[in-house]
Every structure is written in C-alpha cells, then in structure tokens.
C-alpha cells in the first residue's frame, strides 16, 4: 500500500512539473537582460519598465479585462435564467432539444462561431469594435454558464421549493430566497468559467474585432510575427501573479466564510438544544 501511495505522489509531482515548467521558463526569461529566450545573460527589470510605459499594451489589457468581466456577467445573468427555464420545462423531449441546441454551441469550433458572427454583424451593417466583441463573447459564454448552473438546479431538492410555496412564498420569493441562494455556487462557477473563456479567447475575437479595438490575445498574436518580445513574458508573469493572488484570496475567503458559517450554526444550535 505504501509503495503505491508514493508512486501516485510521484505521478502527481510529474504532472505538476509538466504543467508549470513552461510557465516557470517564461517567468524566468522575463527577467533576462537580453532580448530573446535563447540565453540568460543577466537579471534586469527592463522588460517590466517597457511594459509599464507601453500605454497601448496597458490599454489593451484593460480592454480585455473589461470585456471579460462584462461579457461573463451578462452571460451569467442570461445563462442562469436560461437554466431555470430549461429546468421548468415539462416535456422531456423539449428539455433535451433545448439542451442539445445549447451543447452544439459548446462543441462547435470557435473559428466557425467567429466566422458566423462576422458574417452576421456585417450583414446587419454593424460596426465592428467593442460592442461586437462583447456581444459575441456573451453569446459563446451563455452555454457554459447554462452547463455549470443546470446540475446545481437538478441537485436542489424539489421538496424544498414545494415547502417554500407551502409556507406562502410567492414565485419571486421562492426564486430569490430559496432557489438562487441554493444554486449560488453554480452561478459563481459559471461566471468564472465564462470569465476565463472570454479572457483567453482568440478565434472569435479575431473575427469580430474592428479598428480601434484589440484584445490581448490578438495583440500578442500580431506581435509574434517578429518573434515574441520579452515584454510579453513580463506581462504574462504579472498576469500569472494576479491569478495566483486571486486563487489564494478566494481560498482564504472560502475558509474564513466556512468557519464563520460553522460557528454561526453552532451558536444557533446552542439555545435550540436546550
């Protein structure tokens, strides 16, 4: 038993190395004095200073973040309502049909989604730019949210909602007091999934972006024609650190929230038990 345990540990370590080594490599070279990733010639922060003085790059990063935050927010709103609607469909065949339509969007390649959006927008005579990117990001994020929220709704005991109605809750009250709090974790998961999808989307954005607007993936791709600049490494390092902080922050909050909830439950149970 013990040997097997060690082997699995080893495997785990190996997987983590495979995943993190390229990132570590990239971070390491962001401190290079030279201009390429061929040879490490010395430690310097110069790529960070060029990055911080590159207003175009910073502006593009901000654009990307705004698009990701907004599109996933709206997609979460629409997707959650959609999931609730799918859930209350009575006929099984209708439910399956709607779910399949949802899944088709999930599995169809980004290139096709992007191309169809481009054709659609230009057919409507829509100006390509911030709005077109935002709309298409919302569109491809919705199915993700639906898929993340739906299982939570299915998990929810029917009897709980029935109980709410029994106790005289209106439809709105049942939704806001019972259903939504129960599926909140699913909504969060959907939001974060949509957020990451939007953040690193290349293909769709590539098609629907217009003049005066660009996102990070597009910009890096265009710059890569001349070989990737170490400024990109510096940027990636910063983004990696930010996401690391977010994950740690989330973890701490979760722990804190959890222990508080446990404490509160204990306190509430206390007098009742007497």
């Amino acid at each position: 038993m013990k040997a097997k345990f060690k082997l699995s540990n080893l495997y785990l370590v190996f997987v983590f190395i495979v995943i993190y080594l390229p990132i570590a490599y990239l971070i390491f070279y962001s401190f290079n004095t030279g201009a390429t990733m061929d040879k490490f010639t010395g430690f310097s922060m110069k790529h960070y200073t060029t990055l911080l003085s590159d207003t175009r790059m910073i502006s593009i990063v901000l654009n990307t973040v705004v698009i990701a935050l907004l599109s996933s927010l709206l997609a979460t709103l629409i997707g959650t309502l959609g999931a609730l609607w799918i859930n209350q469909l009575k006929r099984r065949s209708a439910k399956n049909a709607v779910l399949s339509v949802n899944n088709v969007l999930m599995v169809s390649p980004d290139v096709i989604i992007g191309a169809s959006f481009l054709i659609f927008f230009s057919f409507l005579g829509f100006k390509l730019g911030f709005t077109s990117v935002l709309l298409s990001h919302i569109a491809f994020s919705i199915p993700i949210v639906v898929l993340m929220v739906l299982p939570k709704i299915n998990e929810m005991p029917r009897t709980m909602i029935d109980a709410a109605y029994d106790l005289g809750a209106s439809k709105w009250q049942a939704l806001s007091r019972v259903i939504l709090p129960t599926i909140t974790p699913g909504i969060f998961a959907g939001y974060f999934m949509a957020f990451t999808y939007s953040l690193d989307d290349f293909a769709v954005t590539f098609f629907v972006t217009g003049n005066g607007f660009s996102t990070l993936s597009i910009e890096i791709y265009s710059r890569a024609r001349q070989g990737v600049d170490l400024e990109v490494n510096a940027l990636s390092t910063l983004m990696f650190l930010v996401s690391l902080l977010l994950v740690v922050g989330y973890y701490v909050l979760e722990r804190y929230g959890h222990s508080r909830r446990v404490n509160r439950n204990k306190m509430m149970k206390g007098p009742n038990a007497q």
């Binding site: 901000l62 973040v65 705004v66 935050l69 907004l70």
Partner: peptide, 14 residues
C-alpha cells in the same frame, strides 16, 4: 459593474 466602469474610465483617461 462598478469595477468595469472604473477600468473603462481609467482606460479612457489614459
């Protein structure tokens, strides 16, 4: 939404 507004504002300012 507020965060978005702040970032967009910052971007615009820049």
């Amino acid at each position: 939404l507020a965060v978005c507004a702040v970032i967009a504002g910052l971007n615009h300012q820049m």
